[in-house]
């Protein structure tokens, strides 16, 4: 479904992403792992058009989307959440998700119908799915960090995506919030059939929900394979998992 080939991007000569490759098939959950600063977020920015790659190619559903602006990428069915919380602070929780739904419904040029009458059911359904219904009318600026991370995902779901990119969805969440968030991701895959690409630091989470894993170090892909492949790969252990000899279990 998504085919990323030898993507590169540098900042002032520093190669943040260097020849990274990745492929995701329809229905899969794929994790990108790697130490801080490995270039995971930059890779996601390149795929979604927030940054333009210097070289390489991004193909989605057979179509070359390299370097398209984010709104074009989104309209082709890719949504994402951000690592650093990136919501609409002056809008209410409901409005945060609603504006995303309205945008997908191509209604943002509608100048005269009150928004208050549009996209209500769908927005409420998403808020219900992710468990934000109780704080529906609060302002997003007043949310806890964990709630805001969930809102991040809810906004992305407003686009009714076929393909969802999650950048460290559980970072900074309490253990309970993390459990709920993992359940949510599993449901998105199983119930809605959304293909998911995500990155995450907690290896337990990664191994428990991913079909395949891509390991990134210093901007490059080291290995791409199943959980078992990655667990036993010597390079990964040297570079990332602390260099112990035994296979991780």
């Amino acid at each position: 479904m998504l085919e990323v080939t030898s993507l590169s991007k540098s900042f002032d000569g520093f190669k943040a992403v260097n020849n990274a490759s990745l492929s995701v098939k329809e229905g899969e959950v794929v994790a990108v792992i790697g130490p801080n600063g490995a270039g995971k977020t930059t890779l996601f920015n390149l795929i979604t058009g927030v940054l333009k790659p210097e070289s390489g190619k991004v193909v989605f559903k057979g179509e070359d989307i390299t370097g398209l602006p984010p709104y074009q990428v989104c309209r082709r069915g890719i949504s994402r959440s951000f690592q650093v919380v990136n919501v609409f602070p002056k809008l209410s929780v409901f409005e945060n998700v609603q504006v995303s739904v309205l945008s997908r419904q191509k209604r943002t040029w509608n100048l005269f119908t009150p928004s208050a009458k549009l996209a209500i059911a769908e927005t409420d359904r998403i808020l219900g799915d992710v468990g934000l219904m109780e704080i529906r009318d609060g302002t997003s600026a007043a949310l806890s960090h964990g709630e805001r991370k969930v809102l991040e995902i809810a906004i992305a779901l407003g686009g009714n995506p076929e393909f969802l990119i999650l950048d460290e969805p559980t970072a900074g969440m309490s253990p309970e919030e993390t459990t709920r968030c993992i359940d949510l991701i599993k449901q998105l895959k199983e119930k809605l059939g959304i293909t998911i690409l995500f990155c995450e630091h907690d290896m337990e989470i990664v191994f428990s929900i991913s079909d395949r894993i891509m390991v990134m170090v210093r901007g490059s892909t080291i290995i791409e394979g199943t959980c078992d492949d990655v667990r036993c790969c010597q390079e990964v252990q040297d570079a990332y998992l602390g260099g112990s000899d035994a296979c991780l279990t």
């Binding site: 927030v50 989104c74 994402r80 919501v87 602070p89 809008l91 945008s103």
Partner: peptide, 15 residues
């Protein structure tokens, strides 16, 4: 208003 609050995010939801 979404663009005012967060232009990058707005583009990412297809605006």
């Amino acid at each position: 208003q979404g663009i005012r609050d967060n232009p990058v995010r707005s583009e990412m939801i297809g605006v």
